Simulated assay, not measured.
Amino acid sequence: MDTKYYWTDEDNGVVTVGLTPEGQNELGNITFVSLPKVGTSLTTKDTLLNVEADKAVSDIPSPVSGKVIAVNDQAADDPSVLSKPDKSDSWIAKIQK
């Protein structure tokens, strides 16, 4: 998935990642997500998120290298939250650089 399909916000070396409206539109209705485990170390070559949706099944690469320090547990229970416009609801993971 192209990098224009996800957003990043960095604060004190912690990068929060989520899907942009373009990414949400490209995928369609999200029906399943596989989130990384907290404590996992990622590089930019690693998959951050596996998504199954109406329009596509995608592996979303990690935009940064670092350690996953938090995931949006609400998304595991209700993947549709990743399609919400509010970043405070629709984030995927927080990664410590």
Rank of each mutant, 00 (worst) to 15 (best):
T43C: 01
A75S: 08
L27I: 12
V15H: 13
L42N: 00
E26Y: 13
L42P: 00
P21W: 03
N50C: 14
K45Y: 09
P79D: 09
V64F: 06
A75E: 12
V68P: 00
S34P: 04
D78G: 02
L49Q: 02
L49F: 03
K67Q: 01
G39A: 12
G18K: 00
V15C: 13
T40S: 01
K55E: 06
D46A: 01
N25Y: 15
T44V: 12
N50D: 15
I69H: 10
L19W: 11
I60S: 03
V15K: 07
P61D: 08
N72D: 12
P36Y: 05
V17K: 08
P63I: 08
D78V: 06
T20A: 14
V57P: 04
N72R: 11
V15D: 03
V38D: 10
N72S: 13
T40P: 00
P63W: 13
A53N: 10
V14S: 07
E22A: 13
K45G: 14
T44D: 08
Q24N: 08
D46S: 05
D46I: 15
D77N: 03
L49E: 00
N72G: 04
K37S: 15
S65Y: 02
T40R: 00
G18N: 09
L27G: 09
K55M: 11
K67P: 01
L48R: 06
K67E: 10
V14D: 07
L49V: 09
N50V: 06
K45S: 13
I30N: 07
Q74M: 12
T43Y: 06
K67D: 04
K55H: 15
V14R: 06
P79W: 09
P63R: 09
I30H: 05
A75W: 04
T20P: 00
T43F: 10
L35H: 01
S62L: 06
E22M: 11
A76F: 00
S41N: 04
N72E: 07
I60E: 00
E22P: 03
L19C: 05
P21A: 08
A56R: 09
V57M: 15
E26V: 12
S41F: 11
K55R: 15
